[in-house]
Design a protein around this nucleic acid. Structure first.
Length: 950
RNA sequence: GCUGAAGUGGUGGAAUUGGUAGACACGUUGGACUUAAAAUCCAAUGUCCCUUGGGACGUACGGGUUCAAGUCCCGUCUUCAGUACCA
């Protein structure tokens, strides 16, 4: 009886589904373990072999933990809001909800495309997901709680003293009792001071305006990349050379009122929290970069002949005597106020010119130095000397205060700017040559020409400068973060609607019992002619405070019926908290995002696996929301993920045929030398393991190749190979369904792991799968022969036990180190050895199945069943490793001469050092090697090696 | 530029605290079985020299430490990823 993987796999997948084998329990005596994958965005293109890599790894770990006696939560769902569905909707007029459902569940979309669906594709690979807990972010039952969290953020403020978020009502109480002088909140820069008395006299509208500046989510004017032709805001990466990536339309920088998230309040905690996460240094480093902490000072410069002051942030207050000019960002508010009449022309022309350039362009074009003099002067805080004030686009409006004190001798950008505009470059470093470039190092230098700072080093001078600035009330020590508040509005249709309506232009939250606010129906998924977001097209999109429901727009009277927010939330809203939703069983999901019971039991994710493209954004945002929810007492954990692994990308191995230029001849790879050829991608499915092209298949592929002539070498056409990103346009996409059909899911799972270390990028080459497939056949033959089951009660031999326990030991180590590729080799070795030993002993073969089961669950389940087990192997005990079976009495010593291994010698392990040396020195091969020489030294490491020197 | 990761046969990749480099596969070559093919099985396979025994060289490159280095240290180069005028 041979190995019929298709039958076996279908059988057990059905069994697992029917018996809910992988359903997690919220009440269990077992210890809990939560294994999570980053949930997929269900695109119409379906899965390719790169997608399941991380899922297979996490599945192996989840299954292993079940064998080890854990109650495992291993859920899956869909990040189903997003841009591609909306773009597709615009093109085809289909509702994104429909295309999204088809992409998940399969079927035929309105355009007539037959779509397999993510779910079926995933099921075919045999994952141990608990599908009963599935979530979809676009489902109103789910986004109800995304909206709820948004409301909680709106209803909260952040106290810097306590480093914690509190209800906004507490802040109102503080304001009414003592004004805002005593509070230390994270808030907008432009808040005014007021007393309790003043606060209490404010109108309701005024109070709302003031509070908005303190809320953790707030409306604010933000500078965005606006594309008038597309009618939407674009992210930086959607703009190429100042034009939109889609359609090449002009993009301008525009201020727009947008919802923002005050993530900056959490900057320090997000940084500190990294210490508690188990992940790679590179991931931590990219989080740190993003947060961008820098320690320095804020310094205030007075503007001469003006009441204005310029505040700057600097990391080098010790170089304050090196300031020879100030630079403001062209967008800085002060520019228009301080520019002299003489300079107005220059300054305005410059501002116009820079406004046309996107932020990205400015960043990309670092070499061009540009700027303009405002005609105004600032006053040096200590020397009181006048300092010319310039504007320049190398200063970014969005970072720090949008202004810098320029120290050309100590900063290369300031230096280049000064050289370009012939501004003086005073040297404040003792014995340093600055004729060629700035001196930016902090160490091993003393400050000079700096009055009271002379002779001090960086550390001392910094401290002193801050102290002196404080005395003048013109500065203080300050820590700055690069992390900016996150814009939370999108001018899109396919996202969560805000639970917000506007009364006299002031945002009001809809009470939580009326949630969800369901996305309205619209005719076209495009912005309105007036440039409003797509929701501006909805006819029924107003809020009635009487019926507490969404009503027709024509009822808007601004007394009881008000307009609703037209923006939707960004993609990261739904993915910032989904891991908590899985914790709750569907039956109990109505009353809360998850019950306290479920949250207390599962706590947070023990293992999180996903792509590195989410290493910054998603991770930062979800960590932010979790910290906020912890502050407000909704959950009990400070970090969402305990351990995080980024799987590497699987690359495609493209195949090329070579068309000789000007002919219709295709030359085999070996014949192209010296010829003018044009490489053309061939579909990888036409190429076999030996890189030989199926010429007929290629000819039939496309009309233009029908008449092609093929010049062969050794009777075959050889293609060229190149590793590239897996993509449809390169014809190197491999579909896991096809692999499952031809070799089986177990082969796919093993092969994906066998390719190499999980975290590394590695090329896919279908040819190699015959190796692991052959292994599964050998495994099968170890249990089943032509007459049926071939497993006996025979007493295992010493060798049998040694093979089994060696395998258990290695596989446990591998799984716990996430080194899945080496486990597969270990299985191969085990099966090769047991086959050679002609092992039929059930005592060996039964536990072996439990070891292999996490990797190849279908075949393991089938053989387990054939051995007479009536329950699933999924929760069978993982066999215990016993050291005694590996104890050896002798060792095959490598005998080296001057570090080079010459031969091996089998010696008992209980031999002493001296005895080993004696035995080795007496050996004929040793004598031959030495050729009469006397060794200077003999190194004997018992149990390891012998090295003879001399 | 900065940060991080990595450079090992024709290919993917193994190699505990420094201790037999190339496990396990793919591919290739030869053989068995077969009318033939597929499948399966057996053998060889880092490079070079050599008649066998064997020898020389080999983990990106150049140094160093050590009885012993893919592994540790210093320097250089290359590739990939992330990030970028952050004051």
């Amino acid at each position: 009886m041979s190995y019929h993987f298709n039958e076996i796999e279908a059988k057990w997948q059905k069994y697992w589904a029917e018996n809910q084998t992988f359903k997690a329990e919220n009440n269990s005596d077992k210890p809990k373990y939560y294994v999570l994958d980053m949930f997929p965005y269900p695109s119409g293109a379906g899965l390719h072999v790169g997608h399941p890599l991380g899922y297979i790894a996490s599945d192996i770990y989840a299954r292993y933990k079940r064998h080890k006696g854990f109650n495992v939560l291993h859920p899956q769902g869909y990040d189903s809001f997003g841009l591609p569905a909306e773009q597709y909707a615009i093109q085809t007029g289909q509702h994104p909800a429909d295309t999204t459902r088809v992409n998940i569940e399969g079927g035929v979309d309105k355009a007539g495309n037959e779509i397999e669906g993510y779910r079926k594709q995933l099921d075919r690979i045999g994952f141990s997901f608990d599908w009963s807990r599935e979530v979809r972010t676009s489902n109103p039952e789910y986004y109800k709680w995304t909206q709820w969290i948004f409301i909680q953020l709106f209803e909260s403020w952040y106290c810097k003293n306590h480093q914690c978020a509190f209800p906004i009502s507490e802040l109102e109480k503080l304001f009414s009792e003592e004004g805002n002088s005593g509070v230390n909140p994270a808030c907008d820069d432009d808040v005014e001071s007021f007393t309790a008395k003043e606060w209490n006299s404010f109108s309701s509208e005024k109070k709302q305006d003031v509070l908005l500046k303190y809320r953790l989510t707030y409306l604010a004017e933000t500078e965005v990349n606006w594309c008038p032709a597309l009618g939407t805001v674009l992210a930086n990466d959607e703009i190429v050379n100042g034009l939109s990536e889609r359609g090449s339309h002009p993009v301008i920088r525009k201020k727009m009122t947008q919802w923002s998230m005050r993530i900056s309040a959490y900057a320090e905690r997000l940084l500190q929290g990294l210490e508690t996460i188990d992940c790679t240094d590179s991931l931590k480093e990219s989080q740190r970069n993003w947060i961008g902490k820098s320690v320095g000072a804020s310094v205030t410069f007075k503007v001469k002949d003006s009441a204005e002051v310029i505040e700057v942030f600097t990391t080098r207050p010790d170089t304050i005597y090196g300031v020879s000019f100030m630079t403001l960002a062209p967008e800085h508010d002060l520019v228009s106020k301080i520019t002299t009449d003489d300079q107005k022309g220059d300054v305005e022309a410059y501002i116009q010119a820079t406004a046309k350039r996107s932020e990205r362009d400015r960043m990309a074009d670092v070499k061009t130095i540009s700027g303009a003099f405002t005609g105004a002067y600032a006053e040096h805080p200590f020397s009181k000397e006048p300092i010319p004030i310039w504007i320049g686009d190398y200063v970014l409006a969005g970072y720090g205060t949008g202004a810098v004190m320029s120290v050309p001798c100590g900063d290369q950008r300031d230096y280049d700017f000064a050289k370009h505009f012939n501004i003086e470059i005073p040297n404040i470093f003792e014995g340093v040559d600055i004729s060629e470039e700035a001196f930016a190092a902090k160490d091993n230098v003393k400050i000079a020409n700096s009055d009271f700072l002379n002779g001090m080093n960086y550390k001392k001078a910094t401290k002193r400068a801050i102290y002196e600035l404080e005395q003048l009330d013109q500065g203080e020590g300050k820590t700055n973060y690069r992390l900016r508040d996150a814009v939370f509005s999108r001018q899109r249709y396919w996202g969560e609607p805000f639970p917000v309506y506007y009364v006299k232009g002031k945002p009001q939250m809809i009470e939580q019992q009326h949630l969800p606010i369901v996305l309205p129906e619209i005719e076209k998924y495009l912005p309105t002619e007036e440039g409003e977001p797509p929701l501006g097209r909805a006819d029924v999109w107003a809020w009635s405070t009487e019926s507490n429901s969404v009503v027709s727009n024509d009822k808007v009277n601004n007394t009881t019926v008000f307009p609703l927010e037209l923006n939707t939330m960004p993609g990261w809203a739904g993915s910032s908290w989904y891991f908590f939703r899985y914790m709750e069983e569907v039956a109990n999901r109505d009353g809360a995002f998850a019950t306290q019971n479920a949250l207390n039991y599962w706590e947070n994710v023990d293992l999180y696996i996903g792509g590195s493209e989410h290493a910054t954004g998603h991770l930062l945002y979800s960590r932010f929301w979790v910290k906020f929810m912890k502050d407000r007492g909704f959950i009990n954990v400070d970090e969402p993920f305990k351990k995080l692994i980024n799987q590497g990308m699987i690359l495609g191995t493209s195949a090329f045929v070579y068309k000789e230029e000007g002919t219709n001849k295709f030359l085999s790879k070996g014949l192209i030398e010296g010829k003018q050829v044009q490489p053309i991608h061939s579909d990888v499915s036409f190429v076999n393991a030996s890189d030989e092209l199926d010429i007929e298949a290629f000819k039939n592929w496309r009309e233009e190749f029908k008449e092609a002539e093929f010049i062969l070498e050794d009777g075959v056409y050889k293609v060229g190979r190149e590793v590239e990103k897996m993509s449809k346009s390169k014809y190197n996409v491999v579909n896991p369904d096809a692999i499952c059909k031809q070799y089986g899911a177990d082969s796919l799972r093993l092969y994906e792991m066998f390719l190499g270390p999980l975290e590394q990028a590695k090329p896919w080459n279908t040819a190699g799968i015959t190796g692991v497939h052959g292994f599964l056949k050998k495994l099968w033959k170890l249990y089943v022969n032509d007459n049926g089951l071939n497993v006996t009660d025979a007493e295992p031999t010493k060798d049998n036990l040694k093979t089994l326990h060696k395998t258990i030991k290695k596989v446990v180590e591998d799984i716990e180190n996430f080194s899945f590729n080496t486990s597969v080799s270990t299985f191969m070795i085990a099966v090769n050895e047991l086959t050679a030993q002609k092992c039929t002993s059930k005592e060996i073969l039964e536990p072996l199945l439990a070891v292999i089961s996490p990797y190849a669950p279908h075949i393991a389940e089938e053989l387990w069943n054939r051995l007479g087990n009536e329950t699933s192997i999924a929760t069978a005990d993982f066999p215990e490793f016993e050291e005694k079976h590996l104890v050896e009495s002798s060792k095959n010593y490598p005998i080296s001469f001057n570090g080079k291994m010459r031969f091996t010698l089998e010696l008992p392990l209980d031999m002493s050092k001296e005895e080993i040396e004696k035995a080795v020195m007496a050996h004929e091969k040793t004598i031959a090697q030495l050729e009469g020489r006397t060794p200077k030294k003999v190194i004997v490491v018992p149990g390891k090696i012998v090295n003879i020197v001399g």
